[in-house]
Structures are given as structure tokens and as C-alpha cells.
Amino acid sequence: MNHDLSGPVTGHVPVLRLGDVLLVTLQGDLHDSTAQQLQQDIGETVAGTGVSGLVIDISGVEMVDSFLGRVLAEIAARASLLAARTVVAGMRPAVAITLVELGLTLPGLRTALSTEVAMDLLAGSDPASRSGGPRQESR
């Protein structure tokens, strides 16, 4: 069913705002155009709303390639430039193994077991503790 949806509908991945956090849920395959659109959407939303956190839930992603790994790293890098911390949540074991085998250990990226843990991480952690990039609460 995924194939039917993701094929012709070069659709939108919804970017939801929950208070101070943006939630993006990826499901199924991510195509080039969708990924580009998503990166743009996230960039605009983060810049427009000034949120401090971004959670990317990839528990619905069963397959991964180097492309998705790079997209995740790029999204995180962009968000950190816009003063938002990114947490990737719910990665499946098979996906993690594939990424490691591909050599994409995504060192700058924060991870969490589930969306809930990711929210806690963003809410609870001290903003000054650790972050990648120039982040202040402004914008």
C-alpha cells in the first residue's frame, strides 16, 4: 500500500508543531523530491516559528539507504544553524545496522528510543549542556 501512495503522490511530509518542538514523522520510502520538499519545509518552519527542538520520528521507516542517512544529517545540520536541536527517534534495529554498515554513524545527531523519550530529552535537558552548532534561544 505504501507503494501506491508514495509513487504518484510526490507528497508532503507533515511538519507538526507541538509547543516548542517540531514533530516530523517519516513513513515508508523517502523520495528525492519529497526529501527536498521536507528539508525546505522544516527550514522555513523552524525559521518562522523559532522552535528550539525538532523531533524526526523514523519508526515507520523499514528500509534505509545512504541517501536517507545523508538527508537526516543535513536536516540536523540546517536545524542547528537555525538554533534548533534535532533528535532522531525510534530507529529500527535493521535500519541502525544498515546505517552502521554503510559507515554512516551520524556522530553529530542525537537519538532517542521513542518520540516520547525525544520530547523528554528536548524538554528536560539543559540548553547549555551539549549542542552541535551555534544555538541560542533567539529567532
Partner: peptide
């Protein structure tokens, strides 16, 4: 190292 990296990717 691989195992550690994979666990970290999952958030553990």
C-alpha cells in the same frame, strides 16, 4: 564499535 554505533543510532 559497530554495535555501539548502532545502539547509539537507536537512542540507547
Amino acid at each position: 564499535m559497530k554495535t555501539v554505533a548502532a545502539a547509539r543510532l537507536m537512542g540507547a
